[in-house]
Amino acid sequence: MGKYVLKRLVYIVIVFFVISFLMYALYNLIPTDPARAQLEPMRQQLKPEEYIRMYKQLRKEMGLDDHLVIRYARWMGIIKGLKGKFDGLLQGNFGYSQTFKKPVVQQISEPMKNTIFINIFATIAALGITLPLGVYCAVHKGKKFDTTVQTMSILGYSLPIFIISLIFMYFFVVRWGIFPLMGSKTPNATYEPGSWEAFVDKVYHIALPVIVMTFASLGGMTRYVRSSMIEALGTDYIRTARAKGLREKVVIYSHAWRNALLPIITSILAWFLGIFGGSVIIENTFSLNGMGKLYWTGLNTLDFELVLAIQMFYTVVSLIGSLLIDLSYGIVDPRVRVNK
C-alpha cells in the first residue's frame, strides 16, 4: 500500500508540471503584451522613439524576450526570478493581475473560498441524495417508483444548467420570494465580517445556486449508482451470498454495495470536476463572487496571469481529486491494494 501511494504521488507531481507547462505555453499564445499595457497611459506624453526605447527596455526588464521555457521556470519558481530570488508559483506568487492592478493572490482568495464552499455543499447534498436513491431504485428495479425516478433523471441531465437556473430563479425568487436573486451578500449589510450573521447571510445567498447545482447533478449520478448496483446484484457471488442464507439486507448493503462502490468512486471524480466546471456558469448566472466568474472576467480582459492562476487552481483541484480517488480505490478494492 505504501508503495502504491508513493507511486501515485510521483505521478501527480509529474502530471502537475506537464499540465502547468502546457497551460503556460497555451496562454502565451494569447496576443497580449504586459509591457505595452503598462506603458499605454504614458503613450501620449512620449515621443515615438522614446516610447519604443522604453518599451524595449521594459520588455527586457519584465523578461518577456526570454525563451518560453525560461519564462515558465521563472513563473513556476524553479529558477531565480528577475529580482534575483526564487519567486514563483511554488513560492506562492501567482503573478500580477493587469485588470485589477493588484497581485493575483489578493484578488483570488475571496472567490476561491466562495467556490470551494459552494462546491463542497453541492457535492455533499448531491451524494446524500443520489447514493440512497440509486440503491433504492436498483433494489426495486422496474417498480413504479423506479420508473418515475428514471424519467425524472433523464429530464434532470438533459436540461442545461442555465435553463435549470432560470426555472428555479423564476419559482424560488420571482414567484415565491424565498431566496435572493443574486450576489454573495446583502448590499449595505452592517454586520461584522466573519461574524455569525455574515455566515448566515452567505448561506442564504448561496442556497439557491447550491440547490440548482445539486439538482443538475442528480440525474446522471442516480442513474450511475443505480446501474452499477444492478450490475453488482446480478453477479454470481450475490447468488452465493443468498445461498448461504444471508438476509436480503446483508446481501444488498454489504455484499453488493461494496462492489458497486468501485465504479461509483471512479465516476465521482469526473462528476466532482464537472461541478467545478458547472460553477463557472452558475456563478455568472447568480453573479456570485467565485472563481468561475473571475475566470470569465479574466478571459474577457485577456488577463494572462490571473487566468493562468485560476487554471492552475482547477488543475490542482482535479489532481488532488484523482489522488483521493486512487487512494480510496486502494482502500476499497483489495485487488488494487495487494497487486500494486
Binding site: 453477479t235 454470481d236 457471488y237 452465493t240 451470498a241 462492489n259 478494492d333 483489495p334 485487488r335
Partner: peptide, 12 residues
Amino acid sequence: FQEPMTSLNPVF
C-alpha cells in the same frame, strides 16, 4: 456453483 472464478465476492 459452477464458476469458482465469479462465485466468491472479490472484496472480502
